[in-house]
């Protein structure tokens, strides 16, 4: 039994197929992390988003997931990095990004055309574009926004899709971020940040009814990692 386990672990290690069960890929190597753009959140992620890994922002509508994504893009711009956003359903708001500090000339924006293609075609194109950008390299943050894709459609993707994408980013100073309604894409040493939405997440300003305005959403993150945070 022990020999069989060692044999399987050796195979996994040789083919670099797993870094959670085995110690393939030297998990003791320090993972460089970059800030999420929200300083209060970075300590909970051991410094921020891990480079060379695929991390996820998971949450429903109005959970603050897009705010976090935009903050991460702005932080990349502040570092002087070039960022890319694969916008599956063409929902990117330029005004919000500018207000958050995103440098538009540092952002490569690939927009899906939801009016021109069915949902599964949009998703396939977005995944392909995500892979192309990761493979090209040189980007500080590459984000894939599939938040408006039904979880069932995401679940129909082949199991190897995310592993193949992870291979592109491994060993690079690139953060791969996936904005998704359900956890699907996190790599072994990546982070899944789950956010929840409720009426309490809305932050209002102004005392009187006429002066009241919505100023933002309070994030309630729950961090999931495989091994890195356990130490």
């Amino acid at each position: 039994m022990q020999a069989a386990r060692l044999h399987i672990e050796a195979l996994l290690r040789a083919r670099r197929l797993d870094r959670t069960v085995t110690d393939a890929g030297a998990p003791s190597d320090p993972v460089r992390a970059v800030t999420t753009g929200l300083p209060w959140l970075d300590p909970r992620l051991a410094g921020g988003w891990p480079c060379g890994e695929t991390s996820e922002i998971v949450g429903p509508v109005s959970s603050g997931r897009t705010s976090l994504l935009i903050a991460s893009l702005a932080a990349a711009a502040a570092r002087g990095d070039v960022a890319a956003l694969i916008d599956t359903h063409d929902t990117f708001d330029v005004g919000s990004a500018l207000a958050a500090g995103v440098r538009l000339d540092h952002l490569l924006w690939a927009r899906g055309d939801p009016a021109g293609a069915p949902a599964h075609v949009l998703l396939e194109r977005a995944i392909k574009a995500f892979g192309l950008v990761l493979e090209a390299g040189g980007f500080g943050v590459v984000a894939l926004d599939v938040a408006d894709v039904a979880p069932a459609d995401l679940g129909r993707l082949p199991f190897t899709t995310w592993r193949r994408l992870q291979r592109f980013v491994e060993g690079r100073d690139t953060v791969a971020l996936v904005l998704t309604p359900a956890p699907v894409a996190r790599s072994a040493r990546g982070v899944t940040l789950e956010l929840t939405a409720s009426t309490a997440t809305a932050v209002w300003a102004g005392q009187s009814r006429r002066a009241r305005r919505l100023t933002g959403l309070a994030l309630t993150p729950h961090v999931r990692t495989a091994r890195r945070m356990q130490g």
Binding site: T66, A74, S96, A99, A100, P114, A115, G216, L217, L219
Partner: peptide, 24 residues
């Protein structure tokens, strides 16, 4: 490096800025 926009006070409490997702 551009000037980072001022962080709203409520960021310290965990809130982000008002970010929109446009529906087109």
């Amino acid at each position: 490096v551009p000037e980072t926009p001022p962080v709203p006070e409520h960021d310290a409490a965990g809130a982000g800025r008002l970010t929109l997702r446009r529906l087109r």
